[in-house]
């Protein structure tokens, strides 16, 4: 493997890396470490979650879904938190770097929000008797969050100048994040004012088995590692795309100049 590790923030992609030995992938030593740790962690989580940890007294094997569901939900909120921070930092510093951080994180966030929703619904069917429960504020809020960030990604895909796109999407992300507490509050209040107790208060037993708690913690750590791993790669891809755009324009201008010189015209 060539040692042209592309280190986006500092070094950028100079001309030499583009000619000849362009990087085959976005990996570097650091990401490989994260990747190996993530994979080992996933193996461990599977062993713990599916084998070693005990059944729940009331939920039986269903509780094992929690080891995927809760970490996915955590990543959903973590990644949108990072997107919000990236957007604020972009509006403040006007640096593409932050915009790409926000974009990469949002993409990963949509993936894990989807996963959290699907696992939640699969869990809900045998537990609540229905895939969907309007009374659960977290569930409904997560769905609205999911939809808003699909909108965010749609805004990002609109062709525009880099800085126009960045500014536009930063503000969309900001509006979405401001809306989240409002949605959560309104849904919560909406249902609790309407019907008294829901089945959902027994979402989690406060008294949770030690090994189950441990498995859940492992799940959270492993998923966070996966997030960092995905983030590094996604960010580097986004960065390379930006560089490609910049350089291809520069190259085109260069070629045009050379042409003009070749025909004897002054530049």
């Amino acid at each position: 493997m060539t040692d042209t590790t592309t280190n986006p923030p500092g070094a950028g992609m100079g001309a030499p890396t583009r000619s000849g030995d362009d990087p085959r992938n976005t990996a570097s030593k650091g990401t490989r470490v994260f990747g190996i740790l993530s994979l080992i962690g996933i193996g461990w989580l599977v062993a713990l979650g599916l084998g070693l940890s005990p059944d729940d007294q009331t939920q039986g094997d269903l509780v094992r879904l929690m080891y995927v569901h809760v970490p996915s939900a955590w990543l959903a909120y973590l990644s949108f938190g990072v997107t919000a921070m990236g957007s604020i930092m972009y509006l403040w510093k006007r640096s593409e770097w932050w915009d790409l951080v926000a974009a990469s994180s949002a993409e990963i966030g949509v993936l894990f929000t989807g996963l959290a929703l699907v696992t939640g619904m699969i869990w809900g069917r045998p537990t609540w008797g229905s895939y969907w429960e309007w009374g659960d504020a977290r569930l409904v809020t997560t769905l609205v969050l999911f939809l808003m960030f699909l909108g965010y990604l749609a805004v990002r895909r609109i062709p525009a100048d880099t800085h126009v796109r960045s500014r536009r999407s930063a503000i969309v992300a900001l509006i979405a994040v401001v809306d989240i507490p409002l949605v959560h509050f309104s849904v919560k209040w909406w249902r609790t004012l309407h019907q008294e107790a829901t089945v959902l208060s027994s979402d989690f037993d406060p008294k949770i088995d030690d090994l189950m708690l441990f498995t859940l913690m492992v799940g959270l750590v492993v998923f966070t590692l996966v997030y960092v791993w995905f983030m590094l790669h996604r960010f580097r891809v986004a960065w390379l795309e930006e560089q490609l755009l910049d350089h291809s324009l520069a190259d085109a201008i260069e070629a045009r100049r050379a042409e003009a010189v070749g025909t004897g015209a002054t530049t």
């Binding site: 939809l147 808003m148 749609a154 609109i158 509006i175 979405a176 809306d179 949605v183 309104s186």
Partner: peptide, 17 residues
């Protein structure tokens, strides 16, 4: 298609309220 997709989720609290 973009405007309703962006606006309606954000207005969910208004609809409820």
């Amino acid at each position: 298609s973009l405007l309703p997709m962006l606006l309606l989720p954000v207005l969910a609290p208004v609809l409820i309220g």
